[in-house]
């Protein structure tokens, strides 16, 4: 009796799991086989593609790193401290997710153009229509995901785990590095993955703030847009698929890289 119940339960889970996997594989496969193989070869050899890959990787990784820099303290404060209006601020930090990217882009454009533009220009730090703008836009889009997941990860830690470390001789900073972060590792990795994936695929806000300029602010998403808008769907889809593969490889590498030596 017991075994059959277990089987039905697990069966349903596995069924959903397999269906989703098939769906996603077919979705990606559709992109893959809709294009022609020749297109892949030409994409891989195209210098513009090389630029876009390198550019996308460093901008998205930088945006993710910056998102982490912001999200770690924000998530920690939202998780550990209580202050008036906390829920309000917590909610505020989710709002950028809801905004259509175009709106985020316009908002950033207004901030870094009319509002801060002159001051930044004097510092030689132009954001609008520059590569920095790409990072800013990606960072803006990716950060809320990181904050929310990091907060969640910190929430799930028993504060007494940290207390014990204090009594064992660790300063608050030591506790954070030696106890809090290792304990929150799963959530932090998940958050980083989400943030990075989102930065990687970001198009709307980037296009608005940084402009769409070949070989200058051309991320893979922008390259896809450009190729689609001149009707070169094959090239666009081949780019998308290769982008997926790059992302896939990097994600796995990241997991292996971060996962060695530590088993939770």
């Amino acid at each position: 009796m017991l075994t059959t119940r277990i089987n039905i339960f697990q069966g349903v889970f596995w069924l959903i799991f397999i269906l989703i996997t098939i769906f996603l594989v077919v979705l990606v496969g559709g992109l893959l086989f809709y294009g022609k193989w020749a297109a892949f070869v030409s994409v891989i050899h195209h210098p513009e593609f090389h630029f876009a890959v390198v550019f996308t990787l460093w901008t998205s990784l930088l945006a993710t790193a910056l998102a982490a820099v912001v999200a770690v303290p924000c998530g920690f404060i939202l998780s550990r401290y209580s202050f008036p209006g906390k829920v309000l601020i917590d909610t505020l930090m989710d709002i950028p997710i809801v905004l259509p990217p175009l709106v985020s882009g316009i908002a950033l454009l207004i901030l870094f153009g009319p509002v801060l533009g002159d001051a930044l220009a004097r510092l030689g730090m132009d954001i609008v229509f520059s590569t920095r703008g790409v990072v800013v836009a990606q960072w803006f889009i990716a950060t809320p995901f990181a904050i929310r997941t990091f907060k969640q990860a910190f929430d799930s830690i028993d504060p007494r785990m940290e207390n014990v470390a204090r009594t064992l001789g660790y300063s608050p900073a030591g506790v954070f590095v030696r106890v809090t972060v290792p304990l929150a590792k799963g959530g932090i990795l998940g958050g980083l993955t989400m943030a990075w994936a989102r930065a990687l695929g970001e198009f709307g806000a980037t296009a608005m703030l940084a402009g769409i300029t070949r070989l200058k602010t051309e991320t893979l998403s922008v390259a896809i847009f450009l190729n689609m808008s001149i009707g070169d769907i094959q090239f666009a889809m081949a780019t998308a698929v290769i982008m997926l593969l790059v992302a896939l490889l990097l994600m796995i590498a990241f997991k292996v890289f971060a996962g060695t030596g530590v088993r939770l």
Partner: peptide
């Protein structure tokens, strides 16, 4: 690992490409 990455993919692709795939 590969499966996990596949599940995360719709996040990576620009939404318009996901739309195209759909």
């Amino acid at each position: 690992d590969v499966l996990e990455a596949v599940i995360t993919l719709p996040l990576v692709l620009p939404p318009s490409v996901v739309g195209y795939g759909l």
